[in-house]
């Protein structure tokens, strides 16, 4: 019991420090243009790596994930409304599971 609280404390510290250091240290430092460029690409590279291939295994079966994901990709071409995209992705995989499993 006591031990598990200490573990949580340790987890909190080692999670917070990498989150905090760059944000605080890079405040008034002039970065070289190519470093800035690299950092500006990070969100999109991270999104790519976070989405694929994990999305395939995000619901009960791979096909139901593919259905939800495809629906979301299709909708994302027409709208930026995230609520619509999220709900349609959930609905797509839900309907697949209801009808085909």
């Amino acid at each position: 019991m006591h031990n598990s609280l200490l573990i949580v404390l340790g987890m909190a510290v080692v999670t917070y420090i990498p989150r905090m250091l760059p944000m605080v240290l890079l405040q008034n430092i002039r970065l070289q243009p190519h470093i800035k460029r690299f950092l500006s690409f990070i969100p999109f590279a991270a999104l790519g790596a976070l989405i694929f291939p994990e999305i395939l295994f995000s619901t009960e079966t791979v096909p139901s994930s593919i259905v939800g994901a495809s629906l979301a990709v299709l909708l994302a071409f027409y709208t930026k409304n995230l609520i619509i995209i999220v709900l349609s992705g959930i609905l797509g995989s839900l309907l697949y599971q209801i009808f085909f499993l």
């Binding site: 999109f44 999104l47 790519g48 976070l50 989405i51 994990e54 999305i55 995000s58 619901t59 009960e60 139901s64 994930s65 939800g68 994901a69 979301a72 990709v73 909708l75 994302a76 071409f77 930026k80 409304n81 995230l82 995209i85 999220v86 349609s88 992705g89 959930i90 609905l91 995989s93 839900l94 599971q97 209801i98």
Partner: peptide, 24 residues
């Protein structure tokens, strides 16, 4: 259960919604 399972995809499709407009 079936809703909980399907909602596992929520954050991934949100990522798609964030990425696609910029990719376009």
């Amino acid at each position: 259960d079936i809703l909980q399972n399907s909602m596992g995809i929520a954050l991934y499709v949100m990522f798609i919604g964030l990425l696609v407009p910029s990719m376009k």
